[in-house]
């Protein structure tokens, strides 16, 4: 497996703040790598350093096996970047925007025309080519933003939170588009703080906080890191605290909480837990409304690792 990006011992310091603290990771060819972390964890800074926009304090960055520098035009030609904030010209139409940015990579007019058309189709903006960005809804604007970054058919794509504040329809469109890009052979680095997207989309995940890697591996591997294996929630009214003590006696139970009529039980191992719970409730003659069982999510992993919710 080839490494498209190799980052070694990367450090980025602002005056007092260590934004990136000795970061090392690789991105493999053809994969979608999820870069996860709360706001301010260093995701965007990492990308900006990799792209050679920011000065780094220490460390080495290689892309396609070569050192990345501001004038590494051959490397840059193969990269597409979609930044977090929408970066398009309000004065240009959808078509002109894509054509402008694509033109920075592709000189040949005929090829460019075809590429721009492909990009418009990929994000589904066919009906809006003559629109100005001000007239587009938030979701459509995000799609335009993406089209501007990938029109030149890059081999390596950075997507920095492309789905923030996007309606579900556009989000699905965007996620489908990303999958398509990967299927066409591109390698993708995807930052987000939406767990669901990572679980649907990414082959591998890196969890960042305060500039450090907390965990990395495939989604399954990362989930393993959670101590728990199953969560059972029961909606039940007026549960006596003595029952909670009883539940805790089960050696498989890690934690029990009861708030606002919802009983939450976390199990270390995930076998027959739901059945056990139903039997327990029957035995004790407790009336309940709803009961269900979940596997842990990345959010739980993150909560485990950092003690805070990912989506704050």
């Amino acid at each position: 497996m080839n490494n498209v990006i190799e980052v070694k011992n990367l450090v980025k310091e602002y005056k007092e703040l260590k934004a990136i603290d000795n970061l090392s990771f690789e991105v493999h060819e053809g994969e979608i790598l999820g870069l996860l972390g709360p706001n301010g964890s260093g995701k965007s800074t990492t990308i900006n350093c990799v792209l050679s926009l920011l000065k780094t304090s220490k460390g080495s960055i290689k892309i396609f096996g070569e050192e990345m520098k501001p004038d590494s035009y051959e490397i840059k030609r193969k990269i597409g970047v979609i930044f977090q904030d929408v970066a398009v010209f309000d004065e240009l139409t959808v078509y002109q925007n894509i054509d402008y940015f694509c033109g920075l990579y592709i000189q040949d007019k005929v090829t460019r025309k075809k590429y721009v058309q492909d990009a418009i189709e990929l994000v589904g903006l066919q009906d809006f080519v003559k629109f100005y960005p001000k007239k587009l809804s938030g979701g459509l604007l995000r799609r335009l933003n993406i089209a501007c970054g990938i029109a030149h058919k890059p081999k390596l794509i950075f997507l920095d939170e492309p789905t923030v504040a996007v309606d579900p329809q556009s989000r699905n469109n965007i996620l489908d588009g990303i999958k398509k890009l990967r299927n066409d052979g591109a390698t993708i680095v995807y930052t987000t703080h939406y767990m669901e997207e990572v679980e649907i989309l990414c082959d591998r995940v890196i969890i960042l906080d305060k500039g450090k890697i907390l965990a990395q591996g495939t989604t399954e591997e990362v989930k393993e890191l959670a101590k728990i294996d199953e969560k059972v929630t029961v909606e039940v009214n007026n549960l006596d605290s003595s029952y909670i003590e009883k539940i805790k006696q089960n050696s498989n139970v890690d934690e029990v909480t009861y708030t606002d009529g919802v009983l939450l039980v976390k199990y270390k191992e995930g076998k027959n837990n739901l059945v056990d719970m139903v039997e327990f409730l029957k035995k004790e003659n407790i009336k309940y409304n709803k009961i269900n069982s979940e596997k842990p999510t990345l959010n739980d992993v993150f909560l485990e690792l950092t003690g805070k919710e990912l989506r704050d």
Partner: peptide, 21 residues
């Protein structure tokens, strides 16, 4: 400012493109 990455988002796009500044 449309061409400078530290001034505008559009500038960031220009900066990551394979063009001489």
């Amino acid at each position: 400012n449309q061409t400078l990455p530290n001034m505008s988002n559009k500038g960031k796009r220009v900066a990551v493109a394979p063009t001489k500044k």
